[in-house]
Design a protein around this nucleic acid. Structure first.
Lengths: 198, 198, 198, 198
DNA sequence: TCGTAATCGAGACGGTACGTCAGGTCTTTTT
DNA sequence: AAAAAGACCTGACGTACCGTCTCGATTACGA
């Protein structure tokens, strides 16, 4: 097993780091996660293998970091505005989510990442901390505000609510059960809000 | 990659086939899918590697077949009785699903299988045809009967309904978002039926 | 190891036997002995592998038989006439040998066969019994007749004599030391006869 | 087949190289060339297979190199002294050759090597350049000196002479035609010198 | 003449070794 | 000290053949 008390990060070569993440992102889209290799990443990035092993513990970690880096650029959409219209706000975020999942460019990478994350508890933890929990939390926060405003019942189960919003869409996406369009997003929001009623 | 104009299946050795599937099932539970190798399967099954390559195109396909074979033995639970009480019937199937997902023995295999299935369109198709679609269809059929009986609105979207039932539970399971117990199953059923109201 | 008390030879399929030997001869010339396989012979001959294993103990034995069969057709040249002129008679047989060795078609097969025979005592014995000893013996017989006629000394070592005739030529052939033409054959005969003088 | 644009030889691990050659030499003596495998060499040498494939194109090349390395250690005996007594000098080298060929330890390796060399033009060339030609040349040189001293005719064919010396002995060895003792060596020298007379 | 027994083509089987690929570690040289 | 380069040991890959073993389907006696 590797050591992975990472070496002095101040001396890290930023160019190499960026080249590795870029190469990883490109390659995962080109050949998929399964056929992706550390050697190919190193070769494409013009980097020694050791430079990868020095800073990441596994292939999954590199790809995951690449995914995060890419999502940080696109903003991540981690802000759910409160316009006062709960349904509209939820529709906005669900529509955005649907658009992302429906994007073929995202599809391969997303599936690859999901597959890795599911079978690696460390990766799963990091995925939840860095991506999933924040997303669910902003959604929950918006619902909490609505609850405080009396728009939904005081005893509404918000954990269940976010699962009702994102779970079906994720289920549909992973299994290819149907289209992921705005109409579908809207119906999900409607169903969820309807379920929260007494 | 393998050729896969499958050889004459009438000459297939049933003992070898069974030994391979058993070995695959055991190993995936012991070491996980990632560390599973064709060589280990062959060794444990007392079989030549070629005998595996002759009949399956990939490691994933073997494991998948092993999973199917195991589920065929346990019946698969593909019968959703109609007692007249829709909520009770749905609770029964959702509780059973929750029990299965919560079973640690199933967890590892299920995650491994899911990861494979997500990234292999062929496997995904087979998974849907052999397992997922039948499950969804019996559920939809039960809802269809209830709709015919006037228990739920005539314009209820049954595709959405089954996704509301299974999607959140699957989402919670994969991401480890919370407990998968009977109370959770019951709340899902309640929420779904509530969402179907007008 | 195989049994090889050969089965009832009266029931043997002569067509198969011929097809196997032909295929073996062709293939050894095409791909060389090392890359020759029983499977390829069987495939080319349109024959089951078992039919080969039933009648021959090894790949070498098949090729050897093929070689013998081919040489039986070309006569084998196993007759050294006694014209009364010893030098002329020896020149005739040495020239014929040189021609054969110099034939590129023979070269590959001959080398392959030699290589096999050298490392398999069983094959070597059969080679000597069926090909080499008869050749050496007719040569020795011719020398014996000459010795009886007083043309060469009574105490001449005939075993050495035949080795002086064939050994250098074989040595030159195997190692590619020089041309194998009639002039060379003639010089060998001259040198050998000269060496037999007192 | 291998690539064989050999990698940077300055970075080669000398320990691995030596271990491989030693293992190859031992194994060829133990199990014979035919049953020798690259995997066994690698295992015995404590080396990865790739390290063999990196530096040698074939099993034959490894064994050949091992043979050369061993012969370099024993000096190769490539010095034919000129005591003034031509017959005695030739007897010395022929007797040494006979002793080597008669050595059972040499027999197996020698036959294996011969078989390889005969069917691989590249190996044959290397064998001639590194072992055979030097041997023949020192012998020819000794004869040349004798010719210059008038001990043998000025028009003696020295190429033929060396073939008369070594060819019969090699022929006898390969085919197992008779004993390889000093008496035989002496007779060969006598016959050859006698053949060189006018 | 009609089983019945052996041979035949075919090819699946348990294996061994192949030659390749990549993993992760280590060393050498350069920056 | 970190990085590019790449040799090293390890081990799995997927393939090719090995020699054995069923399978029907001829084929050729011998009762």
């Amino acid at each position: 097993m590797a050591r992975h008390t990472a070496p002095d990060p101040t001396r890290r070569n930023e160019q190499s780091r960026a080249a590795i993440l870029t190469a990883a992102a490109e390659l995962v889209a080109e050949v998929g996660f399964g056929k992706l290799t550390i050697e190919k990443i190193a070769a494409r990035a013009g980097v020694g293998k050791q430079t990868i092993y020095r800073w990441w513990p596994s292939k999954g970690a590199v790809v995951f970091d690449a995914f995060l880096a890419a999502n940080r650029d696109t903003g991540g959409g981690l802000d759910l505005p409160d316009t006062g219209d709960l349904a509209a706000d939820l529709r906005a975020v669900l529509r955005a989510t649907a658009d992302e999942l429906a994007d073929p460019a995202f599809d391969r990478t997303g599936r690859a990442l999901t597959a890795e994350v599911l079978n690696d508890p460390d990766l799963l933890r990091e995925y939840r901390e860095r991506l999933l929990d924040p997303l669910l939390e902003v959604t929950r926060a918006r619902l909490r505000a609505a609850r405080a405003a009396g728009l939904i019942p005081a005893d509404a189960d918000l954990d269940l609510a976010v699962e009702l919003l994102y779970g079906p869409m994720y289920y549909r996406w992973l299994h290819g059960l149907g289209p992921l369009d705005h109409a579908y997003a809207d119906r999900l929001v409607e169903a969820t809000l309807s379920a929260l009623e007494p």
